[in-house]
Design a protein around this nucleic acid. Structure first.
Lengths: 153, 153
DNA sequence: CAAGATTGAGACTTCAATCTTC
DNA sequence: GAAGATTGAAGTCTCAATCTTG
């Protein structure tokens, strides 16, 4: 056990991390909304749904991939279904469950939104990162994730 | 102009960045709530308020430091005032404005919450980062921020 | 009773509209 | 009219409670 406080460099890194996240996400959200009438949550759901090998996913599986709570996903799917972006039908063999599918409208939305979104991520985030540091950064963040998955609290 | 897509390494880095943020923030929020009955938003407001050299801040100045919208801050201050964490009084010289101050209860809350929060940030984030990479990481993120501040969209 | 999923209430954020004082 | 700040409505997230089927 060490002193609880962050040292100056940690403080700088941590505050910069938080600011980068809020700045980039804020701008990405506005860009997506204006250009494609999608929220970031809509976008993430559609990405996971359409990048899946299978044509449909169960809510629990989708929640797992998004790392969302079931309840959050359920509310989100209700809103997206209302707007015609996804479908819910009964699971073919498990009467307790459902199966989620992107509608044609959902596919069109994600196909038309993806290039602009990816371009924005590159412009807002990666333009500030030297090419040679992208791989080390990915590694560092993946190491943090690995550490996190080993602890409960 | 290049291809709009992210390459594999960028994709890895970006997804890891998002996951680290949501994982860490989710756990920090639960820790703060359970140990100190504060939300992350409460915590951030109190930090800015109590780390200020002056005893009070105007809402616009506080919003600037938090990088929050005025409206968000106003709602947040209403909730915090209701719970006795901050005070709003009329600005001494500018009749349009206000001045915000942490109450004694607010000071106690932040003093008692800060060590546990800092410890959690270190454990959840920095334990996964080699000491020699903290400074380069801070630099990298600050460079991204600098780039961001130069662009509008 | 477990698992899969939804629901409703309450807290939080955003946007546009509003109010007051300079 | 512009600046400082608040308000209300609509959308979103979390938590606990609930419903249905295995």
């Amino acid at each position: 056990v060490q002193t609880p406080w962050l040292d100056d460099t940690e403080q700088r890194a941590w505050r910069a991390f938080l600011r980068v996240h809020s700045q980039v996400m804020g701008r990405l959200a506005r860009q997506l909304q204006e250009d494609s009438d999608l929220s970031l949550a809509d976008y993430d759901v559609l990405v996971r749904l359409t990048e899946s090998a299978a044509p449909t996913l169960r809510p629990s599986e989708l929640a797992e991939r998004l790392q969302w709570e079931q309840s959050r996903l359920s509310h989100q799917l209700s809103r997206m279904e209302r707007r015609g972006l996804v479908w819910r039908h009964d699971h073919p063999s498990d009467g307790r469950g459902l199966v989620i599918e992107a509608t044609e409208r959902g596919w069109q939305a994600i196909r038309s939104a993806a290039p602009g979104h990816a371009e924005a991520v590159r412009r807002l985030f990666f333009d500030g990162v030297p090419a040679a540091e992208v791989e080390p950064l990915a590694r560092l963040l993946e190491d943090v994730l690995r550490k996190l998955s080993e602890t409960d609290d």
